[in-house]
């Protein structure tokens, strides 16, 4: 009897996720994709100067951000982190507003290029363009929490190209020395702009490097949302228990060119690009949910319609927001009130 029950327990339940949880994860993936696709359209229409995409990364991003506690934990994401940022509190409207560089954009008030996620209200660290710098900020936040003895986990993400930066080594080494509460997520999509993995990563395996830092390294299929969630949940628990950092390497797919200024047909085989559709995490997770009886065509259609309406609404409101006022361009170079806080 017991054995039979175990055999029929859906895998998400084994992980402690409810039916509603996994449907909500699926919806976040759909929302991130819909925002992403909308911004490409807006870029083509000349409304957005530039777009750098997260399409194909949504499963890993939603799943790894899922264990984070809003208002308590921290995130230092990177330029493909649409789904991570949405899962950790940013709204579709926040994302579109930032891409339109509006004056009241929560990330930068229109000062930063698209894809530079961040938001003080969400504990998401402002991101720059030199890759990998944010990983040290994540480690510093974790150091702060460790010094103060506070229950805070910081997640930081980056690509496999960035994994080779010296600052990543310095960050992981330091986190390893003090067993800091950090979760490092390497979203390995096989390409650093045009340079493939075998020309980029010595040994070809980012997670294997974890052993050298005395931390746990885990490799997961970024198309397997529950595997990503399991890795992130365990990493989060490990961090909270004082058992140190974790390096998760999620193998994802980059379904678009590097950015709107790139054309991947110059360096990627058309057959390879075509085959990516089969590895789309949204299709894979949708099929799994259908297999577990948690999704049917009616529900899926309804979810997609909801998400579309949300993005339409978000875009409309974002476009109506004011542009930055040049009179504010000199503000916030230094603190405006000198104070001893």
């Amino acid at each position: 009897m017991v054995a039979k029950e175990t055999a029929t327990t859906p895998p998400h339940v084994e992980l402690g996720l409810t039916d509603d949880d996994v449907r909500a994860m699926y919806r976040q993936m759909l929302l991130a994709r819909a925002v992403d696709e909308r911004m490409w359209l807006m870029q083509r229409a000349g409304k957005i100067a530039f777009i750098i995409s997260g399409q194909g990364h949504e499963g890993a991003q939603v799943a790894t951000a899922w264990p984070l506690r809003p208002g308590q934990d921290w995130m230092a994401p990177y330029y493909r982190s649409i789904a991570s940022a949405i899962t950790f509190g940013m709204s579709a409207e926040d994302i579109v507003t930032a891409h339109l560089a509006k004056g009241d954009d929560v990330s930068s008030g229109g000062r930063q290029m698209p894809g530079h996620y961040g938001g003080a209200p969400y504990n998401i660290v402002s991101l720059s363009s030199p890759v990998g710098t944010q990983v040290l900020h994540a480690v510093g936040i974790a150091m702060g929490a460790w010094v103060r003895g506070e229950d805070v986990v910081t997640l930081t993400s980056f690509g496999e190209g960035t994994a080779n930066q010296g600052e990543i080594h310095e960050a992981m080494n330091f986190a390893g020395v003090h067993r800091l509460p950090v979760v490092f997520v390497c979203e390995n999509n096989g390409y650093a702009i045009s340079v493939p993995l075998d020309q980029q990563v010595g040994g070809g395996n980012v997670a294997a490097r974890a052993a050298g830092y005395g931390m746990t390294g885990v490799t997961v299929d970024g198309g397997d949302v529950l595997a990503c969630y399991r890795a992130a949940r365990d990493a989060h628990a490990r961090a909270r228990a004082g058992d140190g950092p974790t390096l998760i390497e999620a193998h994802v797919v980059r379904m678009t060119s590097h950015s709107s200024d790139d054309d991947q047909r110059r360096y990627r085989d058309p057959a390879e690009v075509e085959a990516l559709k089969e590895r789309d995490p949204i299709s894979i997770f949708g099929d799994q949910l259908r297999g577990w009886g948690l999704l049917d065509e009616e529900v899926d259609t309804q979810l997609r319609a909801d998400v579309k309406a949300e993005v339409n609404d978000a875009s409309k409101r974002a476009e109506a927001r004011p542009d930055p006022d040049v009179a504010t361009a000199l503000r916030h170079v230094y603190a405006e009130e000198q104070h001893d806080a």
Partner: peptide
């Protein structure tokens, strides 16, 4: 790391 972690700690 010294500078970057200090920045993170200041953010925190």
């Amino acid at each position: 790391m010294i500078a970057g972690a200090a920045a993170g700690a200041a953010i925190y």
